[in-house]
Amino acid sequence: MPPPPSGTASEPYAVIAVAASAGGIHGLVTLLGGLDAELPVPVLVVQHLDPRHRTVLAEILGRRTELTVKLAEQDEEVRPGTVYVAPPDRHLLVGVDGTLTLSRSELVHFLRPSADLLFESVAGAYGPRAVAIVLTGTGNDGAMGVDAVKSRGGTVIAQDPHSAEFRGMPEAAMGTGAVDFVLPLEEIPAVVRGLVEMKRQ
């Protein structure tokens, strides 16, 4: 069994941050489709996208989940039950007051948006109240970020590489030693629901 997640019952989770790359649309549809509109926390998503094209990712995901899905906007305040997707070619960050920032700062591992930057901002803003999830993808984006989340007492979930279309990102996350749960894709929504509801009892 994995170790119990960090934090105490007096500190309910306040945010879920998700990273995906190649194969990620299927992963996100499965994850978000397993969560209902009463989800008591916001969800922040980095999916690596072609920066040259307008994205319809929010519309695609919105048709497959009861949650509200939208492209993140500068200075927007996050709300429970809403999914905020990083726009193409923008880093997505969140502050301690729950306000989003979109940044054109330097590429990280040749990427913008970067899962590492999202996870690091979530770790700084929410500490033990953060859940970070790494889904299918190539490369190692997210590995430094999950380390930051874990070091601040947050909880980290990685998709089981055997159930991932592309194993690079979940394997890199697992290589940090910071992952609490390694789960087949279909099991992740139930664990997320259990975590955010368990700490509210």
Rank of each mutant, 00 (worst) to 15 (best):
P161H: 10
M169P: 05
P128T: 05
G27D: 05
A9G: 14
F181Y: 15
E171R: 14
A123T: 09
T155R: 03
V149P: 02
I16L: 08
G153L: 06
L118F: 10
P5F: 08
E120S: 15
D50K: 09
T99N: 11
A22W: 09
V108S: 05
L117H: 02
T176P: 07
M169N: 10
L44G: 04
I188Y: 08
P184K: 07
G27A: 15
P113D: 07
S105K: 13
T99I: 15
A14K: 04
P184D: 12
A86I: 09
I25R: 01
P40V: 08
P2T: 13
I25W: 02
A86M: 08
R152C: 11
M169H: 09
D116S: 13
L61P: 01
T155Y: 06
Y126K: 07
V146S: 04
G98W: 02
P4L: 15
D180S: 11
P51R: 10
D180Q: 08
F119N: 07
A14Q: 10
R167V: 14
L39K: 01
T68N: 11
P5Y: 12
A58L: 05
P189H: 08
V192C: 00
H48I: 08
E197P: 00
S121D: 06
L117T: 11
L107E: 14
G27C: 10
R52Y: 12
T99C: 10
R79M: 13
Y13I: 03
S10R: 15
L92F: 12
V179L: 03
G168Y: 08
L31A: 11
E186Q: 14
A164R: 00
T99V: 15
L195S: 00
P189T: 06
T99L: 11
G142H: 01
G168L: 09
R193P: 00
H109D: 13
E73A: 14
N140F: 12
E11K: 13
P4H: 05
R64C: 14
V69G: 00
V85W: 01
R129G: 00
L28K: 03
P170E: 09
H48L: 14
G177C: 09
G33R: 03
G153E: 05
K150M: 10
M169S: 09
V94Y: 03
S114K: 07
L31F: 02
V191I: 13
E66L: 07
R167H: 14
